[in-house]
Simulated assay, not measured.
Amino acid sequence: MNKEKPASPHQPKRKRWSRDDTELTLLGLPATIWFVVFCYLPMFGLIIAFKSFKLSPGQGFLYSLFHSDWAGFDNFKFFLTSNTFGLLLRNTILYNLVFIIINLVIPVTLAIIINQLYSRFASKCYQTMMFLPYFMSWVVVSYFVYAFLNPDKGLANSIIMGLGGEKVMWYSAPQYWPFILVFMSTWKSMGYNMVVYLASITGIDGSLYEAAILDGATKWQQAKYITLPSIKPMIIIMFILNIGKIFYSDFGLFWQVTQRVPASLYNTVSTFDTFIFQSLQSQISIGQTAAAGLFQAVCCCVTILITNFIVSKVDEDSAII
């Protein structure tokens, strides 16, 4: 009688398509179609960055695109060697570094504090009040800011003049705007980030805190030795995602709040995104503008991959990829 040989432990098991695979595929299909149609198909237009794009009279976009002359990397050379590139790079990077640090420290601190509240009603009220600004459009917020900073009838100048000071021409004083932009960005995004960290904190096993209390641990010691280590993976993930957007800026913040980047504030608040938008409205060719946008995308992709690689070497379980 022939006996079947036992399968080798090193021999990979044959994977079969199961009913669960079918259900998960159907669930993910709408999202896949959405990404293909709205994210991947439009990437065909990146070819404009390598062309000297010119509209052909009486012809459509595709005809004009294919019959435009190749420019190679001339569009990128124009952008990288322009007088404003260094300024845009400095502003975009520095603002984002400040945003990343503040949006890490303050939301985590607030999440820990709110989690310590005994009143559930008070906790929900604070969460709602801090989360509300996130849903407000920058267009609406810009009107509130203008009501405060209006040179003639703004609330800020009214208070300053009421205290015996001189009114400030806020939209002509670039030295104040780094603080204004940082404050507005923190105010608007603080609630969302706080809720993300608070959700991670609520998932921590409560018995750890009970054991710490029995050992006489203070609130600070509980946060230091239990809460922060437990939410470290979420902190690292948020950090990696924010680093991946370091070459991007919140267009609404820098364009709407500053009242469309006036000339007096250009050197202080201009970023890659405002430059691209202004270029589309100027005489700069669309190919050079597309090159600037592609430069942003490539730099962000490289940045997030490098950051994820470094994190994977330090703590492999916390890496995204």
Rank of each mutant, 00 (worst) to 15 (best):
N2R: 09
E4T: 14
K5N: 08
K5I: 05
A7E: 12
S18H: 03
D21I: 00
T22F: 10
L27M: 14
P30F: 09
W34T: 15
Y40N: 02
L41W: 10
L41N: 08
P42D: 09
M43C: 14
M43K: 13
F44E: 08
I47Q: 15
K51L: 11
K51S: 03
S52H: 15
F53C: 12
L55T: 11
S56Y: 13
P57Q: 00
G58I: 00
G58E: 02
Q59C: 04
L62W: 15
L62I: 15
Y63D: 11
S64D: 04
L65Q: 00
F66G: 12
D69Y: 06
W70S: 15
F76C: 04
F76Q: 07
T81Y: 12
T84V: 03
G86R: 06
G86Y: 09
L87S: 06
L88Y: 11
Y95F: 15
F99A: 04
N103I: 10
V108N: 13
A111I: 08
Q116N: 08
L117Y: 04
S123E: 15
K124F: 01
K124C: 06
C125L: 13
F131N: 07
P133N: 01
V141M: 13
S142E: 01
S142W: 04
F144E: 00
V145K: 05
G154E: 02
L155P: 07
N157S: 04
S158T: 10
I160W: 03
I160A: 11
I160Y: 02
K167V: 04
S172T: 11
Y176G: 14
F179P: 05
S185Y: 14
G191W: 03
Y192S: 14
Y197L: 09
L198I: 10
I201F: 07
G203Q: 01
G203A: 13
G203W: 01
T218C: 08
W220V: 12
A223K: 05
A223H: 02
Y225C: 00
I226S: 00
T227V: 14
K232N: 05
I236K: 08
M238V: 05
F239P: 03
F239M: 11
I240F: 02
N242H: 06
K245V: 09
D250V: 05
L253S: 05
F254I: 08
T268H: 01
T268I: 02
D273Q: 14
I276C: 13
S279W: 09
L280V: 04
Q281S: 07
S285V: 03
S285P: 09
A297Q: 00
A297P: 09
A297H: 11
C299D: 03
C300G: 02
C301W: 15
T307E: 06
K313R: 15
K313Y: 09
D315R: 15
D317V: 08
I321A: 10
